[in-house]
Simulated assay, not measured.
Amino acid sequence: MEKKYQEVLSKIKQADSILIGASNGLAISGGIHIFAENADFIEQFGDFCEKYGFRNIVQGAFYPYPSEEEKWAFFSRMYAYFLKNKEASPVMKDLYELVKDKNYHVVTSNTDSHFTLAGFPNERLFEIEGNSRYLQCSSGCHDQIYQGDEILSDMARNQEDGRVPSQLIPKCPKCGGPMQVHVEVDRNFLKGEEWQMSFQAYKDFIEKAHGKKLVLLELGVGARNQLIKAPFMNMTNQEENATYITLNMGSEVYIPEEIAAKSIGIDGNIAEVLHQLVQLK
Score class of each variant (00 low, 15 high):
K3R: 11
L9P: 00
K13Q: 12
Q14N: 12
A15T: 02
L19A: 04
L19E: 01
L26R: 05
A27T: 01
I28T: 07
I34L: 12
E37I: 04
A39G: 13
D47W: 07
C49V: 04
E50R: 14
Y52M: 09
G53V: 13
G53T: 06
V58L: 13
V58W: 11
G60Q: 03
A61E: 14
P64Y: 12
P64L: 14
E68V: 08
E69W: 11
K71E: 05
W72C: 03
A73W: 02
F74A: 05
F74R: 03
Y79A: 12
A80I: 10
K84W: 14
K86H: 13
A88T: 11
M92H: 07
D94N: 15
L95W: 00
D101A: 12
D101N: 15
V107G: 11
T108R: 09
N110P: 07
D112G: 09
D112E: 07
S113E: 07
F115Q: 02
T116Y: 14
G119A: 07
P121C: 09
E123H: 13
F126I: 06
E127N: 11
G130A: 04
R133S: 04
Y134R: 12
L135Q: 04
L135M: 13
Q136R: 09
S139D: 00
G140T: 01
C141M: 06
C141L: 09
H142N: 07
D143R: 04
Q147Y: 11
Q147R: 15
I151D: 08
S153N: 14
S153G: 10
D154A: 15
D154N: 15
A156R: 07
N158V: 06
G162K: 04
R163G: 11
V164D: 02
P165H: 15
P165Q: 13
S166H: 15
Q167F: 15
Q167Y: 15
L168I: 07
I169K: 07
C172W: 02
G177L: 09
M179I: 05
M179P: 00
M179V: 08
Q180D: 07
H182G: 04
E184S: 06
V185K: 08
V185W: 09
V185T: 11
V185I: 13
R187W: 10
F189V: 00
F189L: 00
L190Q: 02
K191M: 08
E194W: 09
W195G: 01
Q196S: 13
S198I: 09
F199Q: 15
A201H: 06
Y202W: 10
K203Q: 14
D204K: 14
F205K: 05
F205L: 05
I206F: 05
I206R: 12
E218D: 05
G220D: 05
V221F: 01
V221H: 00
A223M: 14
Q226H: 13
Q226P: 01
K229L: 05
M233L: 13
M235D: 06
T236L: 02
T236A: 14
Q238V: 06
Q238N: 12
Q238L: 12
Q238R: 13
E240A: 13
A242S: 02
M249Q: 10
G250P: 05
E252G: 01
P256R: 08
E257S: 05
A261P: 01
I266L: 02
E272C: 02
E272L: 01
V273G: 00
H275E: 01
Q276I: 00
K281S: 06
